[in-house]
């Protein structure tokens, strides 16, 4: 966050010193792109807020901790695919799961699907890539995430 702010400030300063007009044009372009995507973004944030209320972290822990067999993995994959949890919640949650004895492959599948598959962000993704491509990308990522998670489980 601080790095991003510093990078942006520095880039802005250099750009402004180099060419004032170009910088303003860039800022205008950026602002327009931001405003165009804002409505879809707010929809996604609203969906995520409702989802996190319906499935709070405590419930996730309970679900993931239940089965270490295929039901556990399926649950982890499903939960990971739907959720859009920021890293600052997901990783501490993962650490709690490790401590409470949940199998590593279940946690790995949860984390990989969480990162690679985004069902709640689909409405936004489709605005850029279209529904068919977005669905294909997420389906492929789901298969990939499952594979990565299971492979990790073998080595952890």
């Amino acid at each position: 966050m601080i790095e991003l702010a510093l990078t942006t400030a520095l880039a802005l300063l250099l750009s402004f010193l180099a060419d004032r007009g170009k910088t303003l044009a860039g800022l205008k372009k950026g602002a327009r792109m931001f405003l165009n995507i804002l409505p879809a973004m707010l929809v996604v944030l609203a969906l995520v807020s409702v989802f996190l209320y319906l499935v709070p972290a405590s419930l996730m822990t309970a679900w993931l901790g239940k089965g270490t067999g295929w039901t556990g993995i399926a649950g982890a994959a499903l939960l990971g695919s739907i959720s859009l949890i920021p890293g600052f919640i997901a990783f501490p949650l993962g650490a709690i799961l490790v401590r409470s004895g949940v199998a590593y492959r279940v946690i790995a599948v949860f984390i990989t699907t969480l990162m690679m598959v985004g069902i709640l962000t689909l409405p936004l993704e489709a605005k850029y890539f279209g529904w068919r491509v977005s669905l294909s990308r997420n389906a492929l990522s789901f298969a990939g995430a499952l594979l990565v998670g299971l492979l990790m489980g073998i080595f952890l």
């Binding site: 991003l4 990078t7 880039a11 802005l12 910088t23 860039g26 800022l27 205008k28 372009k29 950026g30």
Partner: peptide, 11 residues
Amino acid sequence: LMFILIGLFDV
């Protein structure tokens, strides 16, 4: 912040 960078990148 990201969109400022994207806009600058663009120009």
